[in-house]
Design a protein around this nucleic acid. Structure first.
Lengths: 242, 242
DNA sequence: CATCCCGACATTGTATACAGAAAATGCCCC
DNA sequence: GGGGCATTTTCTGTATACAATGTCGGGATG
């Protein structure tokens, strides 16, 4: 685990109230999303417990939760590690998300209240602004918020839950496989267009927009088969920092 | 928890080796599927621990696992209970499964090896036989096996995992909402036809077959809105047995 | 008679101790 | 210098004790 992250959290924890497994899971998930915990990073229970000021029981629960969300790899008798989805799994995750999110927006088109549409527009606008400011963390945050809103308002809650999971997983692999030269994966105006189609009730067009959006995002990644660069590292267990 | 189930397990546990959280989750899941643990049944940690001869730690892990599979409802500071999906959730689960399983069989069509096709045919045949024998538990088992095989062989593993979850959830609600007069939800020859289409590589026809199959299954259920019969019981916490 | 309050009990939440498995270390031998 | 083996160290698996919380009853009160 990174040293800076440690200290940052120490302060936050000391000042605040007592933390539960939910809080720990949230913090770790966020850290993975923000690439402060690179794939393969070991997450020993005692260490995390010390950082958050709780015992292993709570940490364990948090790790199990993260494992069920596919954020962390938990194998018997081995330290939990930040998961590093393969290139193949990345492609499959995108395909699954296209299917599910496409259906969700198709169901959603024309059924959204004015308030919800406003909330979506706000996130889209904030995303664009953050991008122009060059504030990438904020941009990601707003982009995630938008898709999360879609999942939450899905008329089909089961699909909504699945979409929440897929959005998280896609975000992780985007962080992982983003081309090194690329500072951002922002795609001009696509979110705005989607919201417009949802407002207009154009179900199939909205599905198409989501498909385009996700294909575009996937195309921005570097998914060329690499020779053991990432894989070996995680397999051989070389963690970049204690 | 039911008394008969207790004793049955006691014997099995005594004779066998040490049990892990995986084993406990398997047994409980199976019991729910077989309707030996009706929805709303309380599952206190100590009781389960005594039954399986392990401490609460292991039981806890098993319950958490089952909760992430949507088999059990685990709320803070409350006893875990067998989940009772609402009628609305049932409909949504079926819709989600149609979407996902339809896509999986479409991807699968024409790509299956002879061995896998044989395995599928065997399950379909065994299901029919079990039905003719009137052996409903065996019939369910083979039906589940068939769909589980589809999920396992999905070229898209992410979708496969989601399908596994959805198959389990549909099985639970089928057990819950099966019309009382109906002894079985067997649908003549539908599985055989599906396998044929998969062998022939007819992707869209296979998707259609799965849709028909699932619509038919859903139609066999009694999903008429009922007045507080199931819902109130589970909400008010009246468990039918100890 | 309904409602509210309070206390005993049941059950989960958390911390901790010890046992066992895996990984890291160091050593020897080649 | 490199590979194999024993040792040590680290970490997880499990059980258990205690704390905190929720549940359910009885009884007083309006």
């Amino acid at each position: 685990m990174s040293q800076a992250w440690h200290e940052e959290l120490q302060a936050e924890v000391k000042s605040g109230a007592r933390v539960g497994d939910r809080d720990i899971a949230d913090k770790v998930r966020r850290a993975v999303l923000m690439q402060r915990l690179p794939p393969g990073t070991k997450l020993p229970e005692v260490t995390l417990g010390e950082v958050f000021g709780v015992s292993r029981s709570v940490v364990r629960k948090a790790l199990t939760r993260l494992a069920s969300e596919h954020v962390v790899d938990q194998r018997p008798n081995q330290v939990a590690r930040v998961r590093a989805p393969s290139i193949e799994e990345t492609r499959e995750t995108f395909a699954a998300r296209r299917l599910v999110e496409g259906e969700v927006v198709a169901l959603l088109a024309g059924t959204l209240s004015a308030e919800t549409l406003d909330a979506l527009k706000i996130q889209a606008r904030e995303e664009t602004e953050s991008y122009r400011r060059g504030d990438e963390p904020a941009r990601i945050e707003h982009s995630l918020n938008l898709h999360h809103l879609l999942a939450e308002h899905s008329p089909n809650r089961v699909l909504g839950g699945m979409l929440t999971d897929l959005v998280l997983r896609t975000s992780i692999v985007v962080a992982l496989y983003k081309r090194s030269g690329l500072s951002s994966c922002y795609q001009e105006a696509q979110h705005d267009r989607l919201v417009e189609l949802l407002a207009a009730g154009e179900a199939e067009a909205a599905r198409g927009a989501i498909h385009d959006h996700l294909f575009g995002l996937e195309a921005l990644l570097d998914l060329s088969p690499r020779e053991s660069s990432i894989d070996l590292k995680s397999i051989l267990g070389q963690s970049p920092a204690i």
